[in-house]
């Protein structure tokens, strides 16, 4: 191999390495810093805290989530709350579990609703669009 050929090969190699580093760094930063994931986790945590609070009060209550949830789908079941965006695969769903007293239940779905409420009626906690 002559010197010119080796130099061209090395130049191509250098360009590939530099491009790969830029690509990996931006991709890593985008994946970790994507605010939607953080928002979903915080939303699920806040819902769980609110459900635990509602289980800890006697009587009925209605609480409106203080934010716009029109980008998210929320599913409330007896022992968990699931938050995801429409069309997302199950691996990317955010799920948080909780334990309610015996005889208590929780259910409800909110599909891309801007205003979402949690309502405690007797022993049932309901997730639904706000009235």
């Amino acid at each position: 191999m002559n010197k010119k050929g080796a130099n061209i090969l090395l130049f191509i190699f250098e360009v590939i390495i530099v491009l790969s580093v830029i690509f990996i760094a931006t991709n890593t930063a985008r994946a970790y810093g994507k605010s939607e994931t953080v928002t979903k986790i915080n939303l699920a945590e806040e819902m769980r805290l609110m459900i635990n609070t509602l289980a800890g009060i006697s009587g009925d209550a209605l609480v409106k989530y203080p934010g716009d949830l029109s980008s998210f789908m929320l599913v409330l079941r007896n022992d968990r709350i699931i938050v995801f965006s429409k069309g997302e695969t199950e691996e990317r769903w955010i799920e948080r579990t909780f334990s309610l007293p015996a005889g208590y239940g929780a259910e409800g779905i909110a599909e891309e609703q801007a205003n979402v409420c949690l309502e405690k009626k007797s022993k049932k906690t309901l997730l639904r669009p706000c009235p």
Binding site: V38, I41, N42, E45, N52, T53, A55, G56, I57, A102
Partner: peptide
């Protein structure tokens, strides 16, 4: 960014012990 203090979580769960007639 996503950290919720454990004390807050436990405090909210523990509310039921003193306030709920089902506890």
């Amino acid at each position: 960014l996503i950290k919720v203090p454990s004390e807050l979580q436990a405090e909210l769960i523990a509310l039921r012990f003193t306030n709920s007639p089902d506890c």
